[in-house]
Every structure is written in C-alpha cells, then in structure tokens.
Write a protein that binds this DNA or RNA. Structure first.
Length: 288
DNA sequence: ATGAATTCCTGTTGGC
DNA sequence: TGCCAACAGGAATTCA
C-alpha cells in the first residue's frame, strides 16, 4: 500500500520518464479513476492533450505532474494504484484505467489500479499557503506538509497535536495534521517510540512528540532507501519492480511473532475498520 | 466545530 | 469442491 516512501519512489521514476514530454493521446478506460475530475472524462483528456509535463512533485501521498498550462495532473494511488511507463505496443495490464501517450517517445504513461481507490484529475495550481515555494493543486491545499518536507514545523505540529482530543494514531493518519503516513508507517513509528496507538494526544509531552517525529522520519527514510514496502505485488514502482522494505517491519503484519525488542508476541487489534499492530510489552495501553 | 463512523472497490484467503 | 465472510485501507463524506 503506497505511503510516502512508495509515492516518492514513483514520483522520481515518473519524473525521469515524463519531464519534457508532450501528451499526444489520452484514453480514460474506467470513469471511476477520474471521478474527482468533476467536469468529466472528456474534459480530463482535453486539458491534457498537447500539453507538456514540466515537473513532478509530491506532498504526502499525493503526487502531481505539472503542465505548461498552469494546471497539474494530480494523482493519488489509493491502495493499489500504479503509474507505469511502458512501450506503446506493450500489452495492456489487467487493471489499466488510464493511458497517456508521451510524445515524441514511443512510450506511454499508464495508470493501473485494481481496487480503484486511487484517482487522477486535472486541477489548477495555486499559491501554497503551507510554506512551499512551488504551487500546489487547489484541491489538496488542505493537506499538511509531510515530515520529510524541510518546511515541516515540529513545534507547530506538537502544539496542534496536543490541542486535539483524539488518539495518537488517528492523528498520525489525519492528513490535515501531517501527511504521507498510513497504517504501516504509523504502526512502525509508534513501535519505535514505544507508544500505544490509543494514547491521548492531549497528554503527550513535547519531547515524546519530538521523539515520535524522529522515529517516523527514520522509518520513512529507511523505507525510501529500500525502495518502499510492498506485500502482494499490487504496488510496484514505475519500472514495475516491487519495493522490499517489508523485511524491515518490526510490528506491522507480525501478529503472534516475537517483538524484536522484548520478545513478547506482537498483538493485532481492530482499529478504524482496519488493524493495528503493537507490542504488549513495550507499548502499554493507556488507562481507561 | 469537532471527532468518529461510513463508504467506496476487487482479489485473495480461510473456514465450514 | 464451492460458497461466503473477512480482510486489505486512504480519505471524502456523512453523522452525532
């Protein structure tokens, strides 16, 4: 499931292949994949055709391909989305949803997405009110900076977090507070910080928040260096190669296996219609 | 206004 | 062998 490290791997790969290319053909094969483009699939294609890609940027789990029109093609991979660059004559992937011809190269950009939680849309770039220098797509202006962004402010995050009446893992998954963190890296950072997912944010000390951010950045950077995490080949990078950080996971998906720190069996708990993995020895549940 | 629950989707897996 | 429930989960939307 693509989180920040996987999306960054895709961003870099896509940028290598599309920068300077001009769109000479667009085919929307599944309308759901452009559902957030409210003007419709035809308008989506129209705004891409004959436009050139100038840069590829990312914030959290969103990435966008800047166009020479002042718009950007915004992409979110959801759970199973892939952006692939393939020769045009290469056979279509089973769940190919959108195809974008890259002139004058004999290649095309393909959006492949089995579960269709991901999406593409065209959106105007607006001034970034969150501290960046480049423009951001208007529809994601509410998304917070991610913790690897140089402009991310730890003190502001800590203060905002401690004003909230919620649990720490909910906050980590709230993209308006901090972006790029999903279920996997939230569990990994909490394990490293020895914090249980249900800890109330209002009771966290500032040094605990700082420590958590440090662990979060560590695990994100390690995963990025390894090319991202992948489990079932639904997620692959732009060249079709799976990431392999799963061997570095200490909590996520390890229910029943011994904690690498204290040996206790990692537990799995239901949480927000999904699962949370933690160590009962090193991550004590809060009282109440 | 805030926080939490619901919903969208498809392929795989496990139990009976 | 076949059927069905559970599961994977990001984030917009809806609800309380």
């Amino acid at each position: 499931m693509p989180e920040l490290p996987e999306v960054e791997v895709v961003r870099a790969g896509v940028e290598h292949w599309v920068a300077g290319r001009t769109v000479d053909d667009v085919a929307v094969l599944h309308p759901r994949s452009v559902r957030r483009h409210t003007a419709g699939a035809e308008d989506f294609s129209l705004r891409l055709k004959e436009r050139s890609f100038t840069a590829v940027r990312r914030r959290g789990k969103y990435l966008w391909l800047e166009l020479d029109s002042g718009d950007a093609m915004l992409a979110h991979l959801g759970m199973s989305g892939q952006l692939l660059v393939q020769p045009r004559e290469h056979a279509a992937e089973r769940h190919q949803r959108v195809r974008i011809g890259l002139g004058p190269a004999e290649r095309e950009l393909r959006f492949v997405d089995q579960r269709t939680f991901g999406h593409l849309m065209i959106d105007p770039l607006v001034d970034d009110t969150r501290g960046g220098s480049a423009g951001v797509p208007a529809v994601i202006s509410h998304i917070a900076l991610d913790p690897l962004d140089p402009a991310f402010d730890d003190d502001v995050f800590s203060a905002t977090l401690r004003r909230k009446r919620t649990e720490i893992k909910r906050a980590l998954l709230d993209q308006s507070l901090i972006s790029g963190v999903g279920n996997i890296y939230a569990d990994e950072a909490l394990w490293r910080a020895r914090l249980h997912w249900a800890r109330p944010t209002a009771h966290l000390r500032r040094p605990q928040v700082s420590g958590l951010l440090e662990h979060l950045r560590d695990v994100l950077r390690e995963a990025l260096a390894a090319g991202g995490t992948s489990f079932d080949s639904l997620y692959v990078n732009v060249n079709g190669e799976s990431g392999y950080f799963e061997r570095g996971l200490k909590a996520y998906g390890r229910a029943g296996q011994p904690c690498g720190r204290c040996g206790a069996a990692i537990r799995r708990e239901a949480f927000m219609n999904r699962s949370s993995y933690s160590c009962p020895g090193c991550q004590r549940a809060p009282r109440g």
